[in-house]
Computed example of a mutant assay.
Amino acid sequence: MPVSTQALIDELHRLTEKLGGPPTLAQLREHGEYSATTYYDRFGSWNNALEAAGYASRDPDSKIPVDDLLEELQRLADELGEPPSAAQMNEHGDYWASTYRDRFGSWNEALAKAGFGPGERRDAQISEQDLLDELRRLGDASDEPAPPTFEMMDESGRYGARTYIRHFGSWNKAVQEAGFEPEHPREVREEELCAELRRLATELEKSRPTAQDMVEHGRHGVATYQRQFGSWSNALDAAFEND
Results as ranks from 00 to 15, higher is better:
residue 180 F to Y: 09
residue 180 F to S: 00
residue 180 F to K: 00
residue 182 P to W: 03
residue 182 P to Q: 04
residue 183 E to N: 02
residue 184 H to A: 11
residue 184 H to G: 07
residue 187 E to Y: 02
residue 188 V to T: 12
residue 189 R to Y: 06
residue 190 E to D: 11
residue 190 E to M: 08
residue 191 E to I: 02
residue 191 E to F: 09
residue 192 E to L: 13
residue 192 E to V: 10
residue 193 L to E: 06
residue 193 L to C: 07
residue 194 C to D: 07
residue 196 E to F: 09
residue 197 L to E: 06
residue 197 L to V: 02
residue 197 L to R: 08
residue 198 R to C: 12
residue 198 R to K: 14
residue 198 R to I: 04
residue 199 R to K: 13
residue 199 R to A: 14
residue 199 R to C: 09
residue 199 R to Y: 12
residue 200 L to V: 02
residue 200 L to A: 10
residue 201 A to V: 01
residue 201 A to D: 03
residue 202 T to E: 15
residue 202 T to G: 15
residue 203 E to F: 12
residue 204 L to M: 13
residue 204 L to C: 11
residue 204 L to N: 09
residue 204 L to Y: 12
residue 206 K to C: 11
residue 209 P to W: 12
residue 210 T to K: 06
residue 210 T to R: 05
residue 211 A to K: 07
residue 211 A to M: 08
residue 212 Q to P: 00
residue 212 Q to R: 06
residue 212 Q to N: 01
residue 213 D to T: 07
residue 214 M to S: 03
residue 214 M to W: 01
residue 215 V to A: 10
residue 215 V to Q: 11
residue 215 V to D: 10
residue 216 E to L: 15
residue 216 E to Q: 14
residue 217 H to T: 05
residue 217 H to Q: 13
residue 217 H to V: 05
residue 219 R to Y: 04
residue 219 R to S: 14
residue 220 H to W: 05
residue 220 H to D: 04
